[in-house]
Design a protein around this nucleic acid. Structure first.
Lengths: 138, 138
DNA sequence: GCTTGACTTAGACATTGTCTATTGTAAGAT
DNA sequence: ATCTTACAATAGACAATGTCTAAGTCAAGC
């Protein structure tokens, strides 16, 4: 399974039961869990894992560049393990469902110098919003 | 000043001292305040205004479509009064400064049907990230 | 199998946002 | 001008999310 665990081990990350569980919970495509969701799933496998550890571990994974923070919804941050392949997000305004998407084109090229205000621009984040098929039919 | 107040009045919005102050605080270009910042600036002009009123008023302005919520930073929501002219945001990763920007091109057109997962896509939000001139020089 | 420094824990604390019951008031009616 | 009344504002409790600390625990190297 998870290349994630492999990569982390290779980077000298000290492996503990808690960290393994967090990494396992985050495995997969179209995974965008909040910290609390990660925690409750982790508790299923390792009942004594604490909230602080989940937050710490998520923060480390983000620093290591193995997981992305996304702020699609205005409430909790979500964590996206699909960090090695650049992508953007499509969010359902009704139910909050999130899909990873890969638009064509480069939005960076669409920002003229005159609109950069002297900034060095390094990254773009695109969030598409709409209604998912499920919510549309009800 | 503010067409905002004009428009609100025209829409039958009951005008109170508190609402006027909130609307005034939000007036201008490149304004992206958090609810708490709005509150503290409102307090300067109207010391007895309560936090709840600021939150309520901001929520109403958003519902009315006169103000946009933006989630550029992962902490508090920010409120952008520039709702009548579509635009995106450029954020400094160091200091959090925000500018309104107007990229060319249409990101909606860049999302192929095969990447829409059956969603009806209605809106796009683009956030550019980088370093502002101020932070770059220090 | 020790030792040690890094990891984990519980829970207090901080920040941001929401809700409720009560009091106040803008704006139309008289 | 004053009255009435529905809507708005208030204080403060509560909720959700995230951060920090002091003390205990353990993975990994020796």
């Amino acid at each position: 399974m998870s290349d994630l665990l492999e990569r982390l081990r290779g980077r000298g990350w000290r492996m503990t039961a808690q960290r393994r569980v967090v990494a396992e919970v985050l495995d997969g495509e179209h995974v965008h869990l909040t910290a609390d969701e990660v925690h409750s799933r982790a508790v299923d496998r390792l009942p004594e894992i604490s909230r602080a550890t989940v937050y710490n571990t998520l923060g480390e994974l983000v620093s290591l560049g193995e997981v992305l923070e996304v702020a699609t919804d205005k409430r909790a941050k979500r964590y996206d393990p699909n960090a090695h392949r650049p992508h953007h997000h499509l969010v359902c305004a009704r139910c909050g469902a999130i899909r990873d998407v890969h638009p064509t084109g480069d939005p960076l090229a669409d920002l003229p110098d005159s609109e950069r205000f002297g900034f060095t621009v390094s990254d773009v984040e695109v969030t598409y919003r709409g209604t998912c098929p499920n919510c549309a039919s009800t």
